[in-house]
């Protein structure tokens, strides 16, 4: 039978486990091969994933499983995303949803973020985790490539309240060549669908001479989905099969990003240590209302929040934000 979680819609039967190798068919149902098996759990800043406009300052329990439905040529987590899941079992943690939630509470985390690999490959476990998290008042977020079916998108929307969706390009050619996925359309559809009801931030890694000419087009699309969309343009760190690639020039991208900011005021440029393009300015009066530090991939953090009730202190303009500022060591209610 065909898997209905992602748009590959793989045929699953016997030892056919699909492109992600994480599902199988049993008794006429699609089931997870490795339910409740996690690859990591660790404490992080919510800005580090990155989420810049959700629960700023909060402490997140970062979790992941293994497997991915894409084969990105520049994957920075290939050892976990593209490894054979059954050979990684020895390295995984078997933790019930209740136990994951308990770990979040023991470490004082305010939310749980699935960030290591693609959540679409572990949807049943994540649905159960979200139920357990909700009971304790913990919100859940995830990073996804957005290649879900309509049905699975609804499931993700029920499990997670904030999303960081990777939009690598606006062209299907790019997706075919660099991720093996045949078509960008489902991703564009899902960004619109999720942005309508959930908090969505989008990340676009810039690959020099490959997708850097598309940035304004991407900005236009995102603006049509939500003019306040938070957009993270990433200076790609070439890894995996594109390790030899040239690093994108920062100076060359600045004018393009300044133009993009006219379309999407909450455009950020980072994934390199010391970036100057990680602060939030009030779009009405230009006051810097939130300051962050960028430590490169996976290390961003808040350093000041001058935006009481998510409003500019100078002119009162609302800054779009899911939830309000959370103090790092604030007790989880």
């Amino acid at each position: 039978m065909r898997c209905n979680y992602c748009e590959w819609r793989c045929e699953l039967s016997g030892s056919k486990y699909g492109i992600c190798k994480m599902y199988h068919e049993q008794d006429g149902e699609i089931q997870e091969r490795f339910p409740y098996q996690w690859s990591t759990y660790t404490v992080s800043h919510i800005e580090s994933f990155p989420f810049y406009h959700a629960y700023p300052g909060s402490k997140s329990l970062a979790i992941g499983t293994v497997g991915c439905n894409f084969d990105c040529q520049y994957c920075s987590n290939a050892f976990i995303a593209k490894g054979e899941p059954d050979t990684l079992l020895e390295h995984l943690f078997y933790l019930t949803p209740e136990k994951v939630v308990k770990l979040a509470l023991q470490t004082g985390c305010h939310n749980i973020v699935f960030n290591v690999n693609e959540p679409t490959v572990s949807i049943p476990s994540l649905l159960e985790l979200s139920r357990a998290a909700r009971q304790e008042g913990l919100a859940m977020g995830c990073l996804t490539n957005g290649y879900t079916t309509d049905e699975a998108t609804e499931l993700l929307a029920s499990a997670f309240s904030f999303f960081n969706i990777s939009l690598k390009s606006i062209s299907s050619d790019f997706y075919r060549k660099y991720t093996r996925a045949p078509n960008v359309e489902p991703i564009l559809r899902n960004i619109k669908r999720l942005a309508a009801n959930s908090h969505v931030e989008v990340v676009t890694p810039v690959v020099p001479n490959v997708n850097d000419h598309e940035l304004l087009e991407i900005a236009r699309f995102l603006s049509s989905a939500n003019p306040d969309m938070v957009w993270h343009v990433f200076r790609l760190l070439p890894e995996y099969k594109m390790k030899e690639l040239r690093y994108p020039s920062i100076e060359a991208l600045i004018p393009v990003l300044e133009e993009a900011r006219q379309l999407l005021p909450y455009t950020y440029f980072h994934n390199f240590v010391g970036s100057d393009w990680v602060n939030t300015e009030c779009t009405e009066c230009g006051t810097v209302v939130i300051e962050r530090l960028s430590l490169g991939c996976g290390g961003d953090r808040l350093i000041s929040f001058d935006c009481q009730d998510n409003s500019c202190p100078e002119c009162g303009h609302r800054i779009p934000m899911l939830g309000g500022k959370i103090e790092w060591n604030q007790e989880v209610v």
């Binding site: 920062i250 100076e251 390199f272 240590v273 100057d276």
Partner: peptide, 19 residues
Amino acid sequence: IFDVREWQTMVNLSTGRKV
């Protein structure tokens, strides 16, 4: 001081603020 190839920046090491 950080060098990320073709771009450098400088901070106060103890506060992390640009200088």
